[in-house]
């Protein structure tokens, strides 16, 4: 009996320790990154870092403006492409598709979610880069290498499809059938029901899906790094090469050990990335939880 009690006691305490350690993980990440980026803040003001457009670590210039613009452009355009396509696909899967089609498409979406990002990057390299260079850009009369903001955006859009789609499908499924019946039985068409009832009832979940998709796109590193061009200049058109925060870390890591200030600058980039994604995720998860409570899921 005593051995049993001892084992229970130790086992339970071990579980507690592990739980606390993991819960503290994001605090440790935050403080470590913050501590590491203090050096750069000592020498450069935050406004200088955020709004100066010269990124030139060799000459002690750490203006992040072009990279921030690049990140916002790449992520923003990715979402502009991905959100309508994903929501319409989710409506189709949840409301219109016959059961047989649905049964085939759902695993398809799961598979798409499981494709490693480096494979997305490779495919973008093989297909999208020449496609943008030889087909899309000439339409607009612009010359480009294909390694540009637009290519990175399309790649990211495809990567966030499965995230937004599966969250939206789930939230549409959580809406009681009777609510659809209520709308249909006054003579609304299916689309009217979707537009006026389903969208309204699931708005919080759809918004949080978009936020989580944003978090994914904002932090995506490898695939973007492979196709965005990697030039730290403020992009003038969507066909210009650019750079994003996450991708910069990969591009620069090999020479970042050259100076402590450079290292600190990159840690600050990681910190910004961390904080932005954190905020968006907190908001997304928060809204999603409130939404789920509404239908007692």
């Amino acid at each position: 009996m005593n051995r049993r009690k001892l084992r229970d006691f130790l086992g339970t305490k071990l579980m507690l320790v592990v739980t606390v350690a993991v819960s503290l993980l994001f605090f440790s990440i935050f403080f470590l990154l913050l501590f590491k980026s203090l050096l750069i803040f000592e020498q450069h003001s935050l406004t200088e870092i955020l709004f100066s457009s010269s990124w030139n670590p060799g000459f002690n210039q750490f203006g992040l403006y072009p990279i921030i613009v690049g990140t916002i452009l790449v992520t923003g355009i990715a979402l502009i492409i991905a959100v309508p396509i994903s929501i319409l696909s989710a409506v189709y899967i949840a409301e219109y598709a016959p059961k047989k089609v649905r049964k085939v498409i759902r695993p398809f979406i799961d598979v798409l979610a499981g494709v490693p990002s480096v494979v997305y990057g490779l495919c973008a390299l093989l297909f999208l880069v020449p496609f943008v260079k030889d087909v899309v850009a000439p339409w607009f009369g612009i010359e480009t290498t294909g390694y540009c903001i637009l290519t990175a955006s399309i790649t990211l859009a495809i990567m966030v499809f499965p995230i937004i789609i599966s969250l939206c499908v789930e939230s549409f499924h959580a809406i009681p059938l009777s609510l659809r019946e209520a709308s249909l039985s006054v003579g609304a068409t299916k689309w009217e029901t979707v537009k006026k009832v389903i969208f309204r009832a699931s708005a919080p979940s759809v918004i949080s899906a978009v936020f989580l998709g944003f978090g994914r796109a904002f932090g995506e590193t490898i695939a973007v790094n492979m196709v965005v061009g990697g030039i730290t200049r403020t992009p003038s058109t969507l066909f210009s090469p650019g750079q994003t925060l996450a991708s910069l870390i990969v591009s620069a890591y090999s020479d970042m050990m050259s100076s402590p200030l450079y290292e600190s600058a990159l840690m600050m980039v990681a910190l910004i990335l961390f904080i932005v994604v954190l905020l968006f995720n907190i908001f997304g998860i928060f809204v999603l939880r409130r939404a789920n409570k509404r239908w007692n899921v």
Partner: peptide, 27 residues
């Protein structure tokens, strides 16, 4: 939809649409 319009439905549990009282009736 035209057939359904001719037939009102009152279900087991009330399911008000996610909108205001007035908009529910005006829907």
């Amino acid at each position: 939809p035209d057939i359904r319009k001719k037939m009102g439905l009152l279900s087991q549990k009330p399911y008000p649409l996610p909108m205001s009282i007035r908009d529910n009736v005006a829907y």
